[in-house]
Simulated scan of single mutants.
Amino acid sequence: MVAPPPAATPTEAPTAPPSDQPTGSPSAGPSADPVAAAAVTALQGALGAEHAAVYGYGVVGARLPEDQQRTDARTAYAAHEARRDAWQRLIGSLGATPAAAAAGYQLPFAVTDAAGATKLAAHLETRLTTVYADLVAAVPGPQRGAAADALRDGALRAHRWGAADPAFPGIPEPLPTPTATIP
């Protein structure tokens, strides 16, 4: 990824929030519970990432030939729509208004052929693992299982699309620590 959420930065208004922040109100309603507010904010971020993934898979599918890869892209597209819808319902059940999708998204690179589409799909899924690792850390126990499932699903799809397999998907690799030498 080049910094935007799963493939994209909203292109709507010049005052759009940073790409890793949810669009829409993260408000948890009248409650001032900081844990609930943090969970809703993280859920809004996941919802925004799924909105961008759905958009991105539209681009992916348009650039793939009618073969197994396009079938895989359609399956991923449907999975992201279902996950997006589930987050919308959950956010609504917590008393917040689910963020709407942007009118369009800026892709992290040009996608002009099947190779670019495959690279974008790997990029989308890799970015989602980061979003979902953050979500696992932010939500309370009842929602943590769904967030962990989303993280696992994203990591598996990223692998299928050819992304590198990190030791802990969604968590950046630590920088190497210099080794001390004893004279």
Rank of each mutant, 00 (worst) to 15 (best):
G58V: 13
V59C: 11
G61Q: 13
A62M: 08
P65L: 08
P65S: 14
P65M: 04
Q68Y: 05
R70T: 02
T71S: 03
R74W: 11
T75G: 03
A76Y: 01
A76E: 05
A78M: 03
H80N: 07
H80A: 04
R84W: 02
R84H: 07
D85A: 12
A86W: 09
A86R: 15
W87Y: 10
R89P: 00
L90V: 08
L90I: 09
L90W: 02
S93C: 04
G95R: 02
A96Q: 08
P98D: 02
A102C: 07
G104M: 00
Q106E: 12
A110F: 03
V111E: 02
T112H: 11
D113G: 09
D113S: 08
D113T: 12
A115T: 15
A117I: 14
A117C: 14
T118Q: 15
A122D: 09
H123M: 05
H123N: 13
L124E: 01
T126P: 10
T126W: 06
T129N: 03
T130V: 13
V131M: 13
V131P: 03
V131C: 06
A133D: 14
D134N: 13
V139L: 03
R144K: 15
G145R: 11
A146T: 15
A148R: 12
R152P: 10
R152W: 08
G154K: 03
A155W: 15
L156P: 02
R157D: 11
R157T: 03
A158L: 09
